[in-house]
Computed example of a mutant assay.
Amino acid sequence: MQPIKQIYYNDSGTSFFWRKENEVLTDKVQLIFRETGFYLSRQELKLFQSCIDESYNQNSNCSDCALKNTCHKFLLKTPCTQIDLAVSMQELKAVKDLVEGTLFKINLDEYLYGEGMN
């Protein structure tokens, strides 16, 4: 049996729940982005989504820039107050997809296998 239950993945990372003794531990999500791992509660994952949205809104105007979305020119705050990530706009879009896809899949599964089974 696999030690993880995958939730979502893209080209930049993956998210999953750990398994322990054949039980899926759903209280926290392991999110791997580039070479960095975060072990976050759902509330922290939602906070990370807010940090990403805020950064995206502040830094999405690259149309006049010669580097066009590929530079490492800004910091992305994380739910871990001591850690910020240096990301390009391309990487920001990738981590945005990873976090949003993870939250969507968790909510969908909870609905399908919870209240939606009525």
Rank of each mutant, 00 (worst) to 15 (best):
L76G: 04
D109Q: 14
L103M: 00
L40C: 10
V29P: 06
S60Y: 14
I4P: 13
S63T: 05
C80V: 15
I52P: 03
Y9C: 10
K28P: 07
F16Q: 10
E21G: 02
L108C: 08
A86T: 15
T81R: 09
Y39A: 11
R19W: 04
K28N: 12
K20A: 01
V95Y: 02
S50Q: 11
N59F: 10
L31E: 03
I4V: 13
V29I: 13
G116I: 00
D11C: 03
R34M: 14
D53I: 05
L112N: 12
Y39R: 15
F104I: 07
F74D: 00
K68C: 01
G116M: 00
K20Q: 14
C62Y: 10
P79Q: 03
P79Y: 04
C65T: 10
E91W: 00
T14L: 09
T70N: 04
D84P: 10
V99I: 09
P79S: 01
T14A: 11
D84Q: 13
L103A: 00
E100L: 03
G116H: 01
L25G: 02
G13K: 03
K68F: 00
L45A: 03
E23F: 01
S12Y: 06
S88K: 02
C51N: 10
M89N: 01
S55R: 12
L47R: 06
T70L: 14
D84A: 10
I4E: 12
N61S: 12
F17V: 01
C80I: 14
L47W: 05
A66S: 12
F74N: 03
F17E: 11
K77G: 06
S55C: 13
F33M: 03
S41D: 05
L98R: 02
Q43N: 10
M117T: 07
E115Y: 04
Q30L: 08
D53C: 04
H72W: 12
A94N: 11
T70M: 14
L75D: 13
E21D: 04
E23N: 07
Q6M: 05
Y113H: 14
D64Q: 10
Y9K: 14
